[in-house]
Amino acid sequence: MLSALRTRLLLAIPTLLLVSFITFFLGYLAPGSPIDLMMGQHGDPAIRKQLEHAYGLDLPPLTQYGRFVWNALHGDLGKSFAMANRPVTQMIAEQFPITAFLALMSILIATVVGLVAGMVAALRHNRLLDRATMGVVLVSVSLPPFVVAPVLTVLLSLKLDWLPASGWEGVAYPEYWILPVLVLAARPTALIARFMRSSMLDVLRQDYVRTANAKGLSPARVIAKHTVKNAFLPVLTVIGNSFGYLLTGSFVVENIFGIPGIGYQSVQSILSRDYPVIQGVALLVAFTFIVVNLVVDMLYTVVDPRVRYESSAA
């Protein structure tokens, strides 16, 4: 298992390289550069040359990329072009924990609610409760966050005065983050609920469950002992994948709620061609995603010892 873990971590290196390579060249190919924004409509080509040289943007692209990788290996992700020369590592250190916290809370809520909803729906398959649960779950994802969020803000903050409209005062003040977390959690909740329902239905019809039922075990015991755990396995993957969605989902949600995470800045960074920040965020999200999925795969082996680690690690 340890060697498998090592292999897996080693495999993360080419993945991260690939991600950074793609990001770099997408950024490089995107029309317009941070220099354009710095110059505004005073577009004297001579000044452009000077600035490009000063920021190292006149080098051949491969050299630029090589420099980036070299510096990144030394823990230096460069400085933001558009945000007051801030070192990207510092931005990440300050702002990523907030995004990660929102994502964790969301995944927690999504997992709990999603699992329960999926289970209830499966056990009451095709009955009213099934339809009701899945209906609510589906309605909650049929609208994009940028519709749901302002509607909720107007309702809960302006009309009912229950929650502050926007802001972030730290983890200790849930009234500021509960709305964003709920908005973020909607889609993963629905995904998890659907997969759980689907998976439960499969398991409920397995021979061993029928055998257990036939043996006269109490239904509650059958569900607890034989069904939930087995049904949970495929759902684990969905949970892991949802984490990626949450990190990028925060792009929009953080913006709407004025939360100083890494998400809002990412979109701005693309618009302002802030290459170092784009690179940093891409790498960070990729790395987080890899780690989360590694954890998920580890959990597989814990939940179900029959799964040999190697098979899921391939």
Binding site: F251, V285, A286, F289
Partner: peptide, 8 residues
């Protein structure tokens, strides 16, 4: 997968 899809 690891790539932030929206960013991409």
């Amino acid at each position: 997968f690891a790539f932030p899809d929206l960013l991409f």
